[in-house]
């Protein structure tokens, strides 16, 4: 956001005017005093105060910071794991998981994905924990490896829609194979606005799976 220069009888008044014009609180801006006011004699030689007020975009700052912390933590873990890789930052995808995506890129990435993405989930969990511990706040962020999740989510969405239509046609419920929570969420979300069908998760732990069935009228 752009900064604003404001004049006033004194510094205090200039700041107040600037905050009013920006619609911000004192804590949400950075203030630089460009010139202090001078009173002069009988108004002769007096000068108004000038301040420069710059709004701080708090959410943006903390998001940038969290992404940096997350990227550093990821790279550090990979280094200890003796995996040479780099990290690309990608924007959140609407209708998928909230938060930016840190996509790990390198050779021999299969080991970082693991069976049903388990290694990737572990990596993500540790990185999230480090970030939230360091910043003392929970930040939504996601890890991916060579776009594995991106592709997986895309095919899950197609599968979900396809099975939704099948349920509508046959009237019979369909049970999907067991999936981790992030993938179940993608299926639920893909069918949230799909008319006539409803989704529910059943089972425990690794065996938890989604059932798609006709919505009862």
């Amino acid at each position: 956001m752009e900064s604003l220069e404001m004049r006033g009888k004194n510094v205090k008044e200039a700041i107040e005017l600037a905050l009013e014009q920006l619609g911000r609180e004192r804590e949400e801006v950075e203030i630089t005093v460009v010139r202090e006011s001078k009173s002069g004699i009988l108004g002769i030689g007096s000068e108004e105060a000038i301040v420069k007020v710059t709004p701080i975009d708090q959410t943006e700052t903390s998001e940038d910071e969290s992404v940096g912390v997350a990227r550093d933590a990821t790279l550090e873990i990979l280094q200890y794991m003796e995996v040479s890789a780099s990290v690309d930052i990608e924007p959140p995808v609407p209708g998928e998981m909230p938060g930016v995506i840190l996509n790990i890129i390198g050779d021999d990435m299969g080991i970082l994905i693991g069976r049903r993405g388990q290694t990737l989930s572990s990596l993500q969990q540790v990185v999230r924990l480090i970030v939230s511990h360091r910043l003392k706040t929970w930040v939504p962020l996601n890890l991916d490896v060579e776009g594995y999740r991106k592709r997986r989510y895309a095919s899950l969405k197609i599968l979900a829609k396809h099975l939704g239509e099948q349920v509508l046609e046959t009237g019979k419920s369909v049970t999907l194979e067991p999936m981790p929570s992030n993938e179940r969420r993608i299926v639920h979300m893909a069918l949230a606005d799909f008319p006539g069908v409803t989704t529910v998760s059943v089972g425990e732990g690794e065996g938890r799976k989604v059932i798609i069935s006709l919505k009862k009228k």
Binding site: M81, I111, S122, L123, Q125, V126, L129
Partner: peptide
């Protein structure tokens, strides 16, 4: 350790990957 041992489990998964290699 984490809730339901999840953090310990995640660390185990990562060292297992290293061990396999």
């Amino acid at each position: 350790i984490g809730k339901q041992g999840r953090v310990a489990q995640a660390m185990r998964t990562l060292i297992r990957v290293m061990a396999v290699r």
